[in-house]
């Protein structure tokens, strides 16, 4: 079946199987920044934004994304134009192995779009589906707080 999904602001017409999973379709189309890990919706590595809201792409039918906008971490910012969150994650040492970071930043982006001044508790709840086995989370929370501050003050894009 043919679907139309706007991925990182580019409209893509894709040929998929009716039972295909969004994570598999995205990776097949070259969006390898979206990571697969548990495939049971537990770990958050595969998080993407669907119309601005974080979802687990490993449990999402690709056909359900037809007509919707998907944003991956690359659509939030890249090496040449990093987003405030990406800079803050580096600055705060919130990355070690890096595998979970695309999902973590994607969840954090959805939070800051909705709530520019989150508390620590807001951040914990918004990122409660993003496991990180390296950092112990504290630096990630610091990074999101720093990015939120920077965005409010207009320091970063």
């Amino acid at each position: 079946m043919r679907v139309s999904i706007t991925i990182n602001a580019v409209q893509c017409l894709l040929e998929i199987e009716p039972g295909d999973i969004l994570l598999d379709v995205l990776r097949r189309e070259g969006y390898v920044e979206v990571k697969g890990d548990c495939h049971t919706g537990d770990c958050g590595a595969c998080t993407v934004l669907l119309d601005g809201k974080p979802v687990a792409s490993c449990l999402m039918l690709a056909a359900k994304a037809d007509g919707h906008a998907v944003t991956t971490v690359r659509g939030i910012g890249d090496q040449r134009h990093p987003h405030a969150l990406q800079k803050a994650f580096v600055h705060n040492g919130a990355i070690q192995c890096g595998y979970c970071i695309p999902g973590a930043i994607t969840s954090a982006k959805a939070l800051l779009d909705e709530n520019p001044e989150p508390t620590r508790e807001d951040i914990r709840l918004a990122m409660d589906g993003n496991y990180c086995r390296c950092t112990g989370y504290e630096q990630q929370i610091e990074a999101v707080l720093e990015a939120a501050r920077e965005l409010r003050e207009g320091g970063f894009r």
Binding site: G44, L50, L59, M60, S107, L125, A126, M127, G129
Partner: peptide, 12 residues
């Protein structure tokens, strides 16, 4: 509804 599973799944 705000505490089941996690944020990504609560959106689904």
């Amino acid at each position: 509804a705000g505490h089941i599973a996690h944020n990504n799944l609560r959106n689904m």
